[in-house]
Write a protein that binds this DNA or RNA. Structure first.
Length: 509
RNA sequence: GGCGCCAUGGUGUAACUGGUUAACACGCCGCCCUCUCAAGGCGGAGAGUUCGGGUUCGAUCCCCGAUGGCGCUACCA
């Protein structure tokens, strides 16, 4: 007998940005499907008409594609189970609700919000589980239909069976809920307003998962307590209950559920910061999963696909760690082609007014940008830090350099004056933009011999005169970049070594 | 209040069906390299596995309880 093909889905609701928790859920679904040779589909859960927005749906799909998590079926990818947007499946749900009503497995509930609230308060006071009393269960069929016809508002509830509700969870094992602790769930909302008659999430998710032949439901563990209600829906229809996998929550460093409060956590914001998608994917994979043996940290997509097993996913919550994400991002930035980094980083420079528009810019400029990036790459966590790190290349501020207290200390010494004078003398003889790393090295050796200065005494004054700071990348990397930049037509003029030294010495007055 | 899930260094994970000096990575500290900051190389500290019982010759691992965290307890998803 051939094994049934696995089918999984990622089912976000378009009520906001795609954030790390959901992205990790999508990734695990995708990896599981790829690993098992199954199918991964995307379904949009927009039954909450008040909060769902089309722009969020667009953003969501863009973010998923950016992560490389393409779906096999879903919006934009036709499949046998279309449509994949719940707001377009209302007819399907209605038919199913009618069936349940007809078969007596669901019933109309005419209770008002006030009545239900009073019931809840009573339950809490009595230290009892807060479950619906089932008051409307016993209403006679004819009467129920009549009241509905007369326009009395009603919701539709499913009758929970009186046996324990069980299911299997691939990350938590067997899970069981006593039926007395599970309320008869609302299937369809009451009221005549916008959402009246619209079925609720817990119901439609089940109908869709069954109809779309989902074999493994992989989702956040905030749904764990809802699962018994969904199991009851499967049972009411006589459908096979799928396998579940509830993923633990991602927490902030304060062990609270990760949210906007913890800073930028949307996938879009990671992209804007200049985090590489492969770094984020690798990081998310590691947040709740470890490969067998547990000694490897970096995985290509193929390796991840090969080694990812749902059974190895941790059940305990994980704390999101920026440091490790940055470490992975550094790893991947070093591993990728510099041309790609230049392509990605250009907009940051453009926005800062340092580079012209990317389209139609001369080839020389992008080649130079690549060289600039190579200089700063070792100290880079994310691409958007680049303009800041490279600021001194573009804007050389003599006054600020001199005003800096630590710099002033270095420059105040007698030996610094000698070194700078000797350096200036040599630079003034060179054509603008012509200084090479080799040339610079030779000069420094001469100056060392001439002034007797060495080490910091020798280099720091020069570094300050050239970059405005006494720390930064190696000279043999910085100088060629400065010189090459000085010959380019950019929105901001890059001062050459000679210009820098001349302006610096002149300021000395 | 009720129900459920979870618990290995600061963080993420590892430890074959119970037997390891409890491993790896991030971070941290130090050394080397170096004009400096990073990067890189090398080394180190840091958990006896939340606590208490039990089962066992032997428990991170199995069972029970406690504690703590989180989730659900909506006509949100």
């Amino acid at each position: 007998m051939k094994a049934k093909k696995t089918r999984v889905r990622f089912a976000p609701s378009p009520t906001g940005m795609l954030h790390v928790g959901n992205a990790r859920t999508a990734l695990y679904n995708w990896l599981f499907a790829r690993h098992t040779g199954g199918e991964y589909l995307l379904r949009i859960e927009d039954t909450d008409l008040d909060r769902s927005e089309a722009r969020h749906e667009t953003q969501l799909m863009e973010d998923l594609r950016w992560l490389g998590l393409e779906w096999d079926e879903g919006p934009g990818v036709p499949g046998p189970h279309a449509p994949y947007r719940q707001s377009e499946r209302l007819g399907i749900y209605r038919e199913h609700t009618e069936r349940l009503l007809r078969e007596g497995k669901a019933y109309r509930c005419f209770c008002t919000a006030e009545e239900l609230e009073a019931e809840r308060e009573r339950a809490v006071a009595m230290h009892r589980p807060q479950v619906y009393s089932g008051k409307c269960r016993g209403i006679d069929r004819e009467e129920s239909a009549m009241r509905a016809r007369l326009g009395e508002p009603f919701a539709v509830r499913l009758q929970i069976p009186d046996h324990p509700l069980r299911f299997h969870d691939m990350v938590r094992g067997a899970v069981e809920f006593a039926s007395e602790t599970v309320s008869d769930p609302i299937l369809v909302r009451s009221g005549s307003g916008k959402s009246g008659g619209v079925p609720v999430y817990n119901y439609v998710v089940t109908v869709d998962d069954a109809l779309m032949e989902i074999t493994h439901v992989i989702r956040g563990d905030d749904h764990l307590s809802n699962t018994p209600k969904q199991v009851a829906v499967y049972e009411a229809f006589g459908w096979k209950v799928p396998e579940f996998a509830h993923l633990s929550t991602i927490l902030g460093s304060d062990r609270e559920r990760l949210s906007k409060r913890h800073g930028a956590t949307s996938i879009a914001s990671f992209r804007e910061m200049g985090i590489l998608p492969e770094a984020l994917v690798n990081y998310l994979a590691l947040l709740g999963w470890g490969a067998e043996g547990g000694t490897r940290e970096t995985f290509t997509e193929e390796e991840l696909t090969r080694e990812f097993k749902l059974e190895r996913v941790t059940a305990s919550p994980a704390v999101f760690d920026w440091g490790k994400l940055h470490w992975l991002n550094r790893h991947y930035m070093k591993a990728t082609e510099i041309s790609r980094l230049a392509e990605l980083a250009w907009p940051y420079f453009e926005r800062a007014g340092l580079l012209p528009g990317q389209d139609g810019a001369p080839e020389k400029v992008s080649a130079w940008l690549e060289a600039v990036i190579a200089v700063f790459l070792p100290s880079l966590d994310q691409l958007d830090q680049l303009p800041g790190k490279a600021a001194f290349v573009f804007r050389f501020d003599v006054e600020a350099a001199r005003a800096n207290v630590e710099n002033a200390e270095v420059l105040g010494t007698e030996i610094a004056g000698k070194v700078l004078a000797a350096f200036a003398a040599r630079v003034s003889g060179a054509a603008a933009g012509s200084v090479t790393g080799e040339q610079f090295k030779a000069w420094m050796n001469e100056i060392k011999a001439e002034t007797g200065a060495k080490g910091k005494d020798l280099f720091h004054p020069v570094r300050i005169a050239l970059t405005g700071a006494h720390s930064g990348p190696e000279f043999d990397k910085v100088i060629p970049v400065i010189e090459a930049g000085s010959g380019l037509e950019l929105p901001v003029h890059v001062a050459s070594v000679r210009e820098r030294v001349e302006r610096f010495v002149k300021q000395q007055g």
